[in-house]
């Protein structure tokens, strides 16, 4: 059973008009922005299901752009997101897809940053402004964005998980939830670690230094 807070019910405070179509959309795009961790030059959003059917009317497009620009769901600038994106030199494009999706409110976000690094994030808005990121760079993950999250891609070999969790313990970062995923034995693997306190850039550098199996790391 999901552990709801009273503020999941009375809340969030947000810009209208729809908790799943605006607040949730802002949060998914905001996480995508944090994951790429650099200035963004282009974004392509592909909307599926009800996002594609009714997204325009709900201002889901503005909400997604708002998230990419780093706004929170109650930011009063969201209605002006198109103009603000243009001012900041962020190119945006939308595709409203009729392809089937696992969940009615799904969006795929393809981002290119100013260094030409590409990233693809898939997320769903699961109601009441709550979200789930389900894919990062075609790798299945599960992250809610409710906690600071560290995502590590690494080689699937013994000891990597142990080192990471040991380093976090020494840095006094408590792990709330942790999931591991892999493409296959000995191939690329991912760790998705939700923590009570954020893992700072310095901490990330320490983890990288101590653990040679890590190929990439993102923090939200």
């Amino acid at each position: 059973m999901e552990d709801f807070s009273v503020f999941d019910i009375i809340g969030p405070r947000m810009t209208g008009p729809s908790s799943s179509h605006t607040a949730g959309a802002v949060r998914i795009a905001y996480i995508a922005r944090k994951l790429i961790g650099a200035e963004i030059s282009r974004v392509h959003f592909t909307l599926y299901g009800s996002f594609a059917e009714t997204g325009r009317g709900h201002g889901t497009d503005k909400a997604l752009i708002g998230g990419i620009l780093g706004f929170s769901p109650d930011d009063e600038r969201i209605p002006h997101a198109y103009e603000l994106a243009m001012d900041q030199g962020v190119q945006v494009a939308f595709t409203y897809s009729d392809a089937p999706a696992d969940h009615p409110n799904t969006v795929k976000i393809e981002i290119v940053d100013i260094n030409d690094r590409k990233m693809e994030v898939v997320g769903r808005s699961v109601g009441g402004g709550n979200i789930l990121i389900t894919e990062i760079n075609e790798q299945a993950v599960e992250l809610s964005g409710d906690y600071p999250t560290l995502i590590i891609s690494h080689r699937d070999e013994p000891g990597v998980i142990a080192i990471v969790s040991q380093v976090l313990a020494q840095l006094k970062v408590n792990i709330a939830f942790m999931r591991v995923f892999r493409h296959g034995r000995g191939r690329d693997a991912y760790m998705c670690i939700e923590t009570d306190t954020p893992v700072t850039k310095e901490m990330q550098a320490i983890i990288r230094q101590l653990c040679s199996g890590i190929t990439d790391m993102f923090a939200v």
Partner: peptide, 21 residues
């Protein structure tokens, strides 16, 4: 009406039903 004009509201439990409470 404030909600539909992309104004600030509190979802209760959702934005579409945010007026009643």
């Amino acid at each position: 009406e404030v909600n539909s004009s992309m104004g600030r509201i509190v979802a209760a439990p959702t934005a579409g039903a945010s007026g009643i409470l």
